[in-house]
Amino acid sequence: MSRLERRFAAIKAEGRGAFIPFITSFDPDPATFQRLLAGLPGAGADVIEIGVPFTDPAADGPSVQASGLRALKQGVSLKKTLAAVAEFRKSDNETPIVLMGYFNPIYIMGCETFAKAAAEAGVDGLITVDLPPEEEAELRDPIKAAGIDIVRLIAPTTLDDRLPYVLEHASGFFYYVSITGITGTASPTLDSIEAAVKRLKKHTDLPMAVGFGIRSPEMVGKVSQVADAAVVGSAIVERVTANLDDQGQAKPDLVEDVLGFVQQLAAGARNAN
């Protein structure tokens, strides 16, 4: 059983939905990021999603774009992100970590090399935003061989006839993009999510995480009740941004404030009834 499977099974047994925070690797600087990462499980993260910055994040809204650029200025790379995961694993061997990013950094590292290094570092799942199943062949085998779950994005535009194809190699969970749009912009309605759950659950038993536009503890509560997990990204990234000074440096209370916000979001999932 993979870490993701274990974690989703355990949460289901608790009779609640999971909460998945997203933070950008090396945002706003390597040390602060490492502290945030280390603090997320204690703040209530059931699974952690780490954004791997790319210069051209065509699926991301302004908040995540800006955080990626900050991180790139701090010298972030895929390799350094894996090192940060390995560091995290020294003190936490249970909380699943999912990397979310774009294909080019992986392609340049080499699919085989990446898969082995990611597994060694303790990565559990991979979301590659711009790699649809049509183009995935060269990455799929190495990733599967390394025991890493392929987390598929499914959008409102992914119609029923395409679903079996998209879900074919999916494992761990799948990520429902709740709006047709980029991260952190519009928010979905609960009705539309309920309809999506109904539609998608006919096709798979995998846990369903819902993200894009989920910003508050209340929404986390509602969404995690309807689906299996709620993902919050831009709202957390914006909280990081709000804790930067004029020079873009982390203010002293950044980690405490951001983790406090994460705690509120996580409580949304835990207290929902």
Partner: peptide, 20 residues
């Protein structure tokens, strides 16, 4: 037929755009 010129080309887009 799947949009490649040898190693090059293809359709590297987010799932939201793929059906389109």
């Amino acid at each position: 037929p799947d949009g490649h010129f040898g190693l090059f080309g293809g359709r590297y887009v987010a799932e939201t755009l793929m059906p389109l």
